[in-house]
Design a protein around this nucleic acid. Structure first.
Lengths: 225, 225
DNA sequence: ACCTGAACACCGTTCAAGT
DNA sequence: ACCTGAACACCGTTCAAGT
């Protein structure tokens, strides 16, 4: 019943864990050395003993979530594994909305960091198991990865306070309505497709697209016999 | 021979133009109301008369660059148009590296804004012209868009000072070397593919992947006769 | 070795006051 | 209507000083 107070020593692991919680609770802009040090009952500067700077902290938080999401993916047929990897990331973004915009930026900024190889390995193994010729492994895997990252970034919902489901409906409806009011000459396609977007199911659309990407890769890089 | 000084009145257009220049010259972190107002020889607060806040300013800069990139895409066979749209964005990111990470974030944050419909229209028209059944238009177009956005985010090179070509080579080499030194049991795929990544051609890989995505969409959503 | 917390050099944004 | 620039409430990061 006492007030929360320091029980363990500080460690990189505890800091990253707290950063994830803070990001979940307050979003991208809420991750602050001051807020984080308060949550850890320590001084702002103490964090710098374990983490070089804010970029590294964000990167570590991103990687921790990705690692834990991918850990749940089991062995199966290549196509199933690819779907499972994609959906694991999809679910992770649902739980940690900040991940969507963070993931792509993180990976392009520091491909030497842990997250890029982690995701590349998770996608590349099933892609190679599909029978794609080795010369095309990197290209084929990158194609899937680009698709997954693009979808991830796009499906990051803004907040999670209250009913996420209602928020999402209102959000999509507002966008669809705006689309329907666009100029008829400049935006015929968008106007025509606005209703489809209002009613679409994120997850189903994601899996459909992923299946298409896989089919296309196999068509362009057919397994040798 | 006089010092640069205010010649025209401020306008949203001039502000956005200056923001793009500032982003090009100093990167994401360099876009500051103080730096921007200095460049425009005005007070920091003056900008707020024309622009609501920094998010809107970033969004306007992103949209201006995307609009100008897409303006150069001419009419042609659907497949060519899709390649041209993709490459136009690719080139724009080459000239404005900050665009890579900005584009995806921007579109997911404000799909009511101008950039999402702009890109959706540019990709959706050729996709529908490909003969994809109307019921699949939104899904198919989103698939291409996700791929393009993911690739865009990933291919944003960090700086452009000095020789971008040399920077790129060193950047890829560093990443490839790091990949080759990963644990052999945990990262067999990444290690095996590191050399392919060191030598890959961004643009060629992007077009290859785009062709695969298109092929896959046509396989899953074949044109009705 | 690890932590404290004040201090520094910045930010975005607001707003009374000017023209 | 549009602009000025000081002021406010923040930031990330550093670093002498403590234990």
């Amino acid at each position: 019943m006492t007030r929360a107070r320091r029980s363990d020593a500080l460690s990189r692991e505890r800091i990253v864990e707290a950063a994830v919680e803070l990001l979940d609770a307050t979003g991208e802009a809420g991750l602050t050395f001051r807020a984080l040090s308060e949550r850890l009952s320590t001084g702002a500067g103490a964090i710098y003993w374990h983490v070089a700077n804010k970029d590294e902290l964000r990167g570590a938080a991103t990687d921790a979530v990705v690692a834990s999401a991918l850990a749940g993916v089991g062995a199966a047929a290549p196509r199933e594994v690819l779907r499972a990897v994609g959906l694991a990331l999809f679910d992770a973004i649902d739980e940690h909305p900040w991940l969507g915009t963070q993931l792509g930026a993180q990976m392009s900024r520091t491909p030497q960091g842990p997250t890029t190889p982690r995701l590349l390995e998770a996608i590349g193994r099933p892609v190679s198991a599909l029978g794609v010729p080795e010369a095309a492994w990197f290209t084929a895997t990158s194609t899937v990865m680009y698709y997954v990252l693009g979808a991830a970034g796009q499906n990051a919902v803004n907040g999670r306070a209250g009913s996420a489901e209602l928020d999402r409906t209102a959000f999509l409806d507002a966008a669809a309505t705006a689309w329907e009011e666009l100029d008829a000459d400049d935006y015929p396609f968008v106007r025509r497709v606005a209703a489809q977007m209002r009613d679409h199911d994120d997850q189903r659309q994601f899996v459909d697209g992923l299946d298409a990407v896989i089919a296309g890769i196999l068509a362009l890089h057919p397994p040798g016999r």
